[in-house]
């Protein structure tokens, strides 16, 4: 009965105040927090991790949030999304009450402080466009190559932990759409590159020179899809610890301003 009374209260409160509420009406309510955790795992965990530890999306288990630490700030981000990132707006897909329940779940994590990168962003930038060779494949703003993911807003959309893993072990978590297609033609040639599409009858890919190819399965010897990155591995050895930190500091600073 307790939750029924609470739900009634919340319904009235939400109806009256909508998104104007500063604090989740479910704050501290265990049943609602449990429901929020369930919703989080269903809708959010694919990007933010099953334990909110972060992944493609920032970690949300650190008690601090980049868009603001008030309940209303977290609500706003969930409801309206973050333009320019993969974070969609859930305001049209979920009820206000359900979003507040997710907010209440996220507020159960104690503040542990954001991870700081002890690096020099300016040195990282020089490395990125110079000896590191990153800019040959990655674009920032209008500068750089387009074989790898666009990093213009990567500091907004990825956690430092995720960026570090992506640098040191690119195969661990491929960005969506970045699988490799390998085609062996009837005359024995192998052509591989980033897959633009693959289905039961055809494949389209872009090779390292940027050239587009399209093949029908019936016209070639084989078409295989590989879930490994074309980004070279081994940066853990070729870059010093300090260089890695500098690069991460640079990427963490990429918030999208360069595209303006």
């Amino acid at each position: 009965m307790r939750w029924r009374v609470l739900t009634l209260f919340v319904s009235l409160a939400v109806a009256a105040a909508g998104q104007e509420l500063e604090r989740s009406p479910f704050h501290g309510d265990e049943a609602s927090i449990g429901a929020g955790k369930a919703s989080f795992r269903l809708r959010c965990s694919a990007c933010h991790g099953i334990h909110a530890e972060g992944g493609k999306g920032p970690p949300l288990n650190r008690g601090e949030f980049s868009a603001g630490n008030r309940d209303a700030d977290i609500y706003r981000v969930i409801a309206q999304g973050v333009p320019g990132t993969e974070m969609p707006a859930y305001g049209t897909r979920s009820t206000e009450e359900n979003i507040w329940r997710i907010v209440s779940f996220l507020r159960t994590f104690e503040a542990v402080g954001d991870e700081r990168v002890d690096g020099d962003a300016e040195r990282g930038e020089a490395l990125f466009w110079g000896a590191g060779g990153c800019g040959g494949c990655h674009k920032v703003g209008r500068r750089g190559g387009s074989y790898g993911p666009d990093l213009t807003r990567i500091g907004r959309s990825r956690s430092v932990q995720h960026l570090r893993e992506a640098l040191l072990d690119p195969d661990e978590d491929l960005p969506a759409g970045y699988f490799v297609v390998k085609v062996v033609t009837r005359d024995g040639k192998t052509i591989s590159g980033i897959g633009s599409g693959i289905d039961d009858f055809s494949a389209q890919l872009r090779d390292v020179s940027g050239k587009l190819h399209s093949f029908l399965r019936e016209d070639v010897e084989s078409i295989e899809r590989e879930f490994k990155s074309v980004m070279p591995s081994g940066y853990g050895e070729s870059l010093s610890d300090q260089q890695q930190r500098d690069l991460l500091a640079y990427m963490q600073a990429l918030r999208g301003e360069e595209s303006r």
Binding site: W3, T7, A31, G34, A35, A38, L42, N98
Partner: peptide, 11 residues
């Protein structure tokens, strides 16, 4: 994970 029932919410 253990989850309390809330009517009309994912269970």
């Amino acid at each position: 994970a253990t989850q309390d029932f809330v009517e009309g919410e994912y269970y």
